[in-house]
Write a protein that binds this DNA or RNA. Structure first.
Lengths: 243, 243
DNA sequence: CGTGCGATTGAGTTGGTTCAAGGCCAGTGG
DNA sequence: CCACTGGCCTTGAACCAACTCAATCGCACG
């Protein structure tokens, strides 16, 4: 566990992700890289942003996972969305200066302010923000209408999709830092039940999940089984030129 | 049931709501009123927008209720958010030209394109869009961590809050057009269970719900009981000057 | 006076929770 | 080098909130 403080990073994930959303020019990419060099490290389980705080700056995640969460009085916790490398935090589309949710690091994280004043980057931020909304909608359907197994499969596939977008996943797997309790807080289940469902998926030979790595045996078949279609394709402008 | 087609309306709800979000100038208000006069009526249970459709124009709801919904293959349905009079549809914050969800009318509805090119209105749209996100986050927590009774109370109180914002509710009640099945599709429950929970609330003397009107016996007490705080206050810029 | 949609009720079932007790393993300190 | 943590995962058994299925009621409307 490295101590928080200064750190350096090349910003691969951010560049990879944003340039898949919008075809970026050299200046934008360079600005991202430069920003990434000024990255700050934050330990796991730290609150980056509190609900209602003024948003000073827009941040990007260079490394590690964070989450937008809400706590109830009695300790119940809901993770409303995950923030992965390449994602933006506090992407307030406007003059709304207050955070609408708490943001907590789930792992050790490295972040930096996102560069401003580059038209293409602004466009990418906008698309990114639209994607975020699409993921919120997906989360609502997941919680409202899917059963435990479907929820888990659906969220895992979404993560594969997003990690691929950031260039951090192979065709069928990626490094997976979440505990079962975090999965429970995302899916609205208990960690005990998440455990049983993961075992079910393992027994069915759908996934391999061990030592911090998640691998799908056949992601397409699985997606098909729970009736999932990728969010990116359906909810977003097709990447221009790229792809 | 009036036939769809041309209709006229003064746009009270829209003006009321938006001028609570941002202090509008005379020109903006007049533009809203003028737009409202060109309102179009749509029957209940009609799909205004399909997922993936290009968004031609930004619409406002003048009268009636609609919803952003998603259907699963097997007929399960989730209402992701409600659209009330004064709300905007397809408030795409950017160049993202595709609808991220289906929009269906729940009641007979009257709508019109929202005026463009007024700086203060644009600001109001932006705030409105931020609120929409806050409501999505609230919906996620509701579905993920509240039990049936809490979900129902929470959503009903949210609706009170929103209807008041549009000037369509008294201090403790408003006209309520939703069927129990629609409530079920919002709360991720079955209509049978929604029915039982509503009866519970009636028995506890929390609400009166009959002949299309919902009244709270003591909204504050109820809010307190389920640990709910208003979304508007916590997640939004305080209305400047107003209030 | 039907007719049909929505609300209501009952009885049985189940998916997911709760509570509580281990088990595993990486990191730490002696 | 090994024993001792502490965090996370695993397992079992009892329980309960919410679902399912199916019948009935009530009312607005034609």
């Amino acid at each position: 566990m490295r101590p928080p403080g200064r750190a350096s990073f090349d910003g691969t994930a951010v560049v990879h992700r944003l340039s898949r959303l919008v075809e970026l020019d050299e200046a934008s990419v360079e600005a991202l890289r430069a920003a990434a060099r000024r990255g700050r490290a934050v330990e796991q389980r730290v609150e980056i942003l509190q609900e209602g705080w003024p948003i000073r700056e827009r941040l990007m995640i260079l490394r590690g996972w964070a989450a937008r969460t809400r706590m109830l009085e009695d300790g119940r916790r809901q993770i409303m969305s995950l923030l992965l490398p390449g994602d933006l935090i506090g992407n307030c589309h406007h003059e709304s200066p207050l955070a609408t949710s708490m943001v907590t690091t789930l792992t050790d994280v490295e972040l930096c302010p996102s560069p401003e004043g580059f038209p293409l980057l602004d466009e990418a931020y906008a698309v990114s923000s639209a994607m975020e909304e699409a993921y919120l909608l997906a989360e609502i359907t997941r919680l409202g209408r899917l059963n435990a197994e479907e929820r888990l499969v659906d969220i895992l596939l979404e993560l594969l999709e997003r990690m691929q977008l950031a260039g951090l996943a192979s065709r069928d797997g990626f490094d997976f830092p979440l505990t079962q309790e975090m999965l429970a807080d995302m899916t609205g289940l208990t960690s005990v039940h998440v455990n049983r469902m993961l075992q079910l998926l393992r027994r069915q030979d759908d996934i391999i999940l061990k030592s911090g790595r998640l691998t799908f045996r056949n992601a397409d078949r699985l997606a098909n089984r729970v009736g999932r279609s990728p969010v990116v394709v359906s909810g977003l402008p097709r990447p221009q030129g790229t792809q």
